[in-house]
């Protein structure tokens, strides 16, 4: 823009509110840095997806070969299905629990504060630490399943596809429900008490005011939380790598893990880039939709009109 070079003062309307406003130059360093490591690679990944490259030498263009191969690759197709299953299971288990816990934790009682303080611990931990912890806890020989055979059968939870997906869903919930609870807690606290008072006067009980006041008021947070679950679930990788390594066989290989496998275990960076591009496009589309839906980009408050 025209103010690009003017770091000092943009006095287009002297005396008006624009006096003393910073120029665009203030935004440049961070933008350049971010562009270099996020936007440029995004463009690059699109280009690499049309090349063949084994990590050494220069990438060679090979047209749409990678894309054609991917479309016929049974593991890729299976991985898309597994990704969808993992994302859906994550949303279905995490959303109701997070809403209930969040609304409950929004109360100001002291015991609730103490309980929530402990319940939030998982969101401080790295997914590497969480995965390593759970891998140890569900170890068939030394872990919890071996001690509770009536609940877990032979104890080898990661030995079957259903078991592996169940473990990934459970650990995902353990890791992320606290985070989504926090989102809902904040939103539930922001609900004006007058709405509950009005509902009470109209004769609504706890359950009715939950469904008719709380839930509608949490709409924006639900959208945000849902999108974070979608994007996060889509790219779930650390837990898959450490807990199941995509196994048994390829039974829990989701798309993000398959990309890693192609690139850094199989050294087929061209195909990996094509998979990465698919992930990026889907994730960005989802987030664009939410940016529109929540009015984030217009810098609006969610409390507007209340």
């Amino acid at each position: 823009m025209t103010t690009l070079a003017q770091g000092k003062r943009t006095s287009r309307r002297p005396g008006g509110p624009s006096v003393g406003r910073p120029g665009f130059a203030w935004a440049v360093p961070a933008t350049v840095f971010f562009g270099l490591f996020a936007i440029v690679p995004l463009v690059f990944v699109a280009i690499l997806s049309f090349t063949s490259w084994n990590g050494l030498g220069t990438p060679q263009f090979n047209g749409v070969d990678n894309w054609v191969a991917l479309a016929k690759d049974p593991v890729m197709i299976q991985s898309l299905g597994i990704t969808v299953v993992l994302v859906v299971l994550g949303i279905v288990t995490q959303t109701p629990l997070s809403i209930l816990l969040g609304v409950w934790a929004a109360g100001h009682q002291k015991n609730r504060a103490v309980l929530s303080a402990i319940c939030f611990v998982p969101l401080l931990l790295s997914s590497a630490a969480i995965s390593v912890l759970w891998r140890a806890l569900i170890d068939p020989n030394f872990g919890i399943p071996g001690e509770l055979p009536w609940l877990f059968g032979n104890g080898n939870l990661l030995g079957s596809q259903a078991g592996a997906i169940g473990v990934l869903t459970f650990v995902g919930g353990w890791q992320f429900i606290p985070f989504h609870t926090l989102i809902y807690q904040g939103a539930a606290r922001a609900i004006p008490p007058v709405l509950y008072q009005a509902a009470q006067i109209d004769g609504a009980g706890t359950v009715r005011s939950f469904f008719n006041v709380t839930i509608p008021q949490l709409r924006n947070s639900m959208i945000t939380s849902l999108v974070l679950m979608l994007v996060g679930g889509l790219t779930a990788f650390d837990t898959v790598l450490i807990l199941t390594a995509g196994g048994p066989g390829t039974a829990s290989t989701n798309t993000a893990y398959y990309m890693y496998q192609k690139a850094f275990l199989g050294f087929d960076f061209g195909t990996a880039s094509a998979i990465a591009l698919v992930l990026a496009v889907v994730a960005t589309t989802i987030s664009l939709v939410v940016v529109r839906a929540t009015g984030y980009d217009k810098m609006r408050s969610t409390q507007e009109g209340l």
């Binding site: 996020a38 990944v45 993000a256 990465a276 990026a280 994730a283």
Partner: peptide
């Protein structure tokens, strides 16, 4: 929304 995995290569 840009996942790190998408640009890791």
């Amino acid at each position: 929304a840009i996942p790190a995995q998408a640009v890791i290569v």
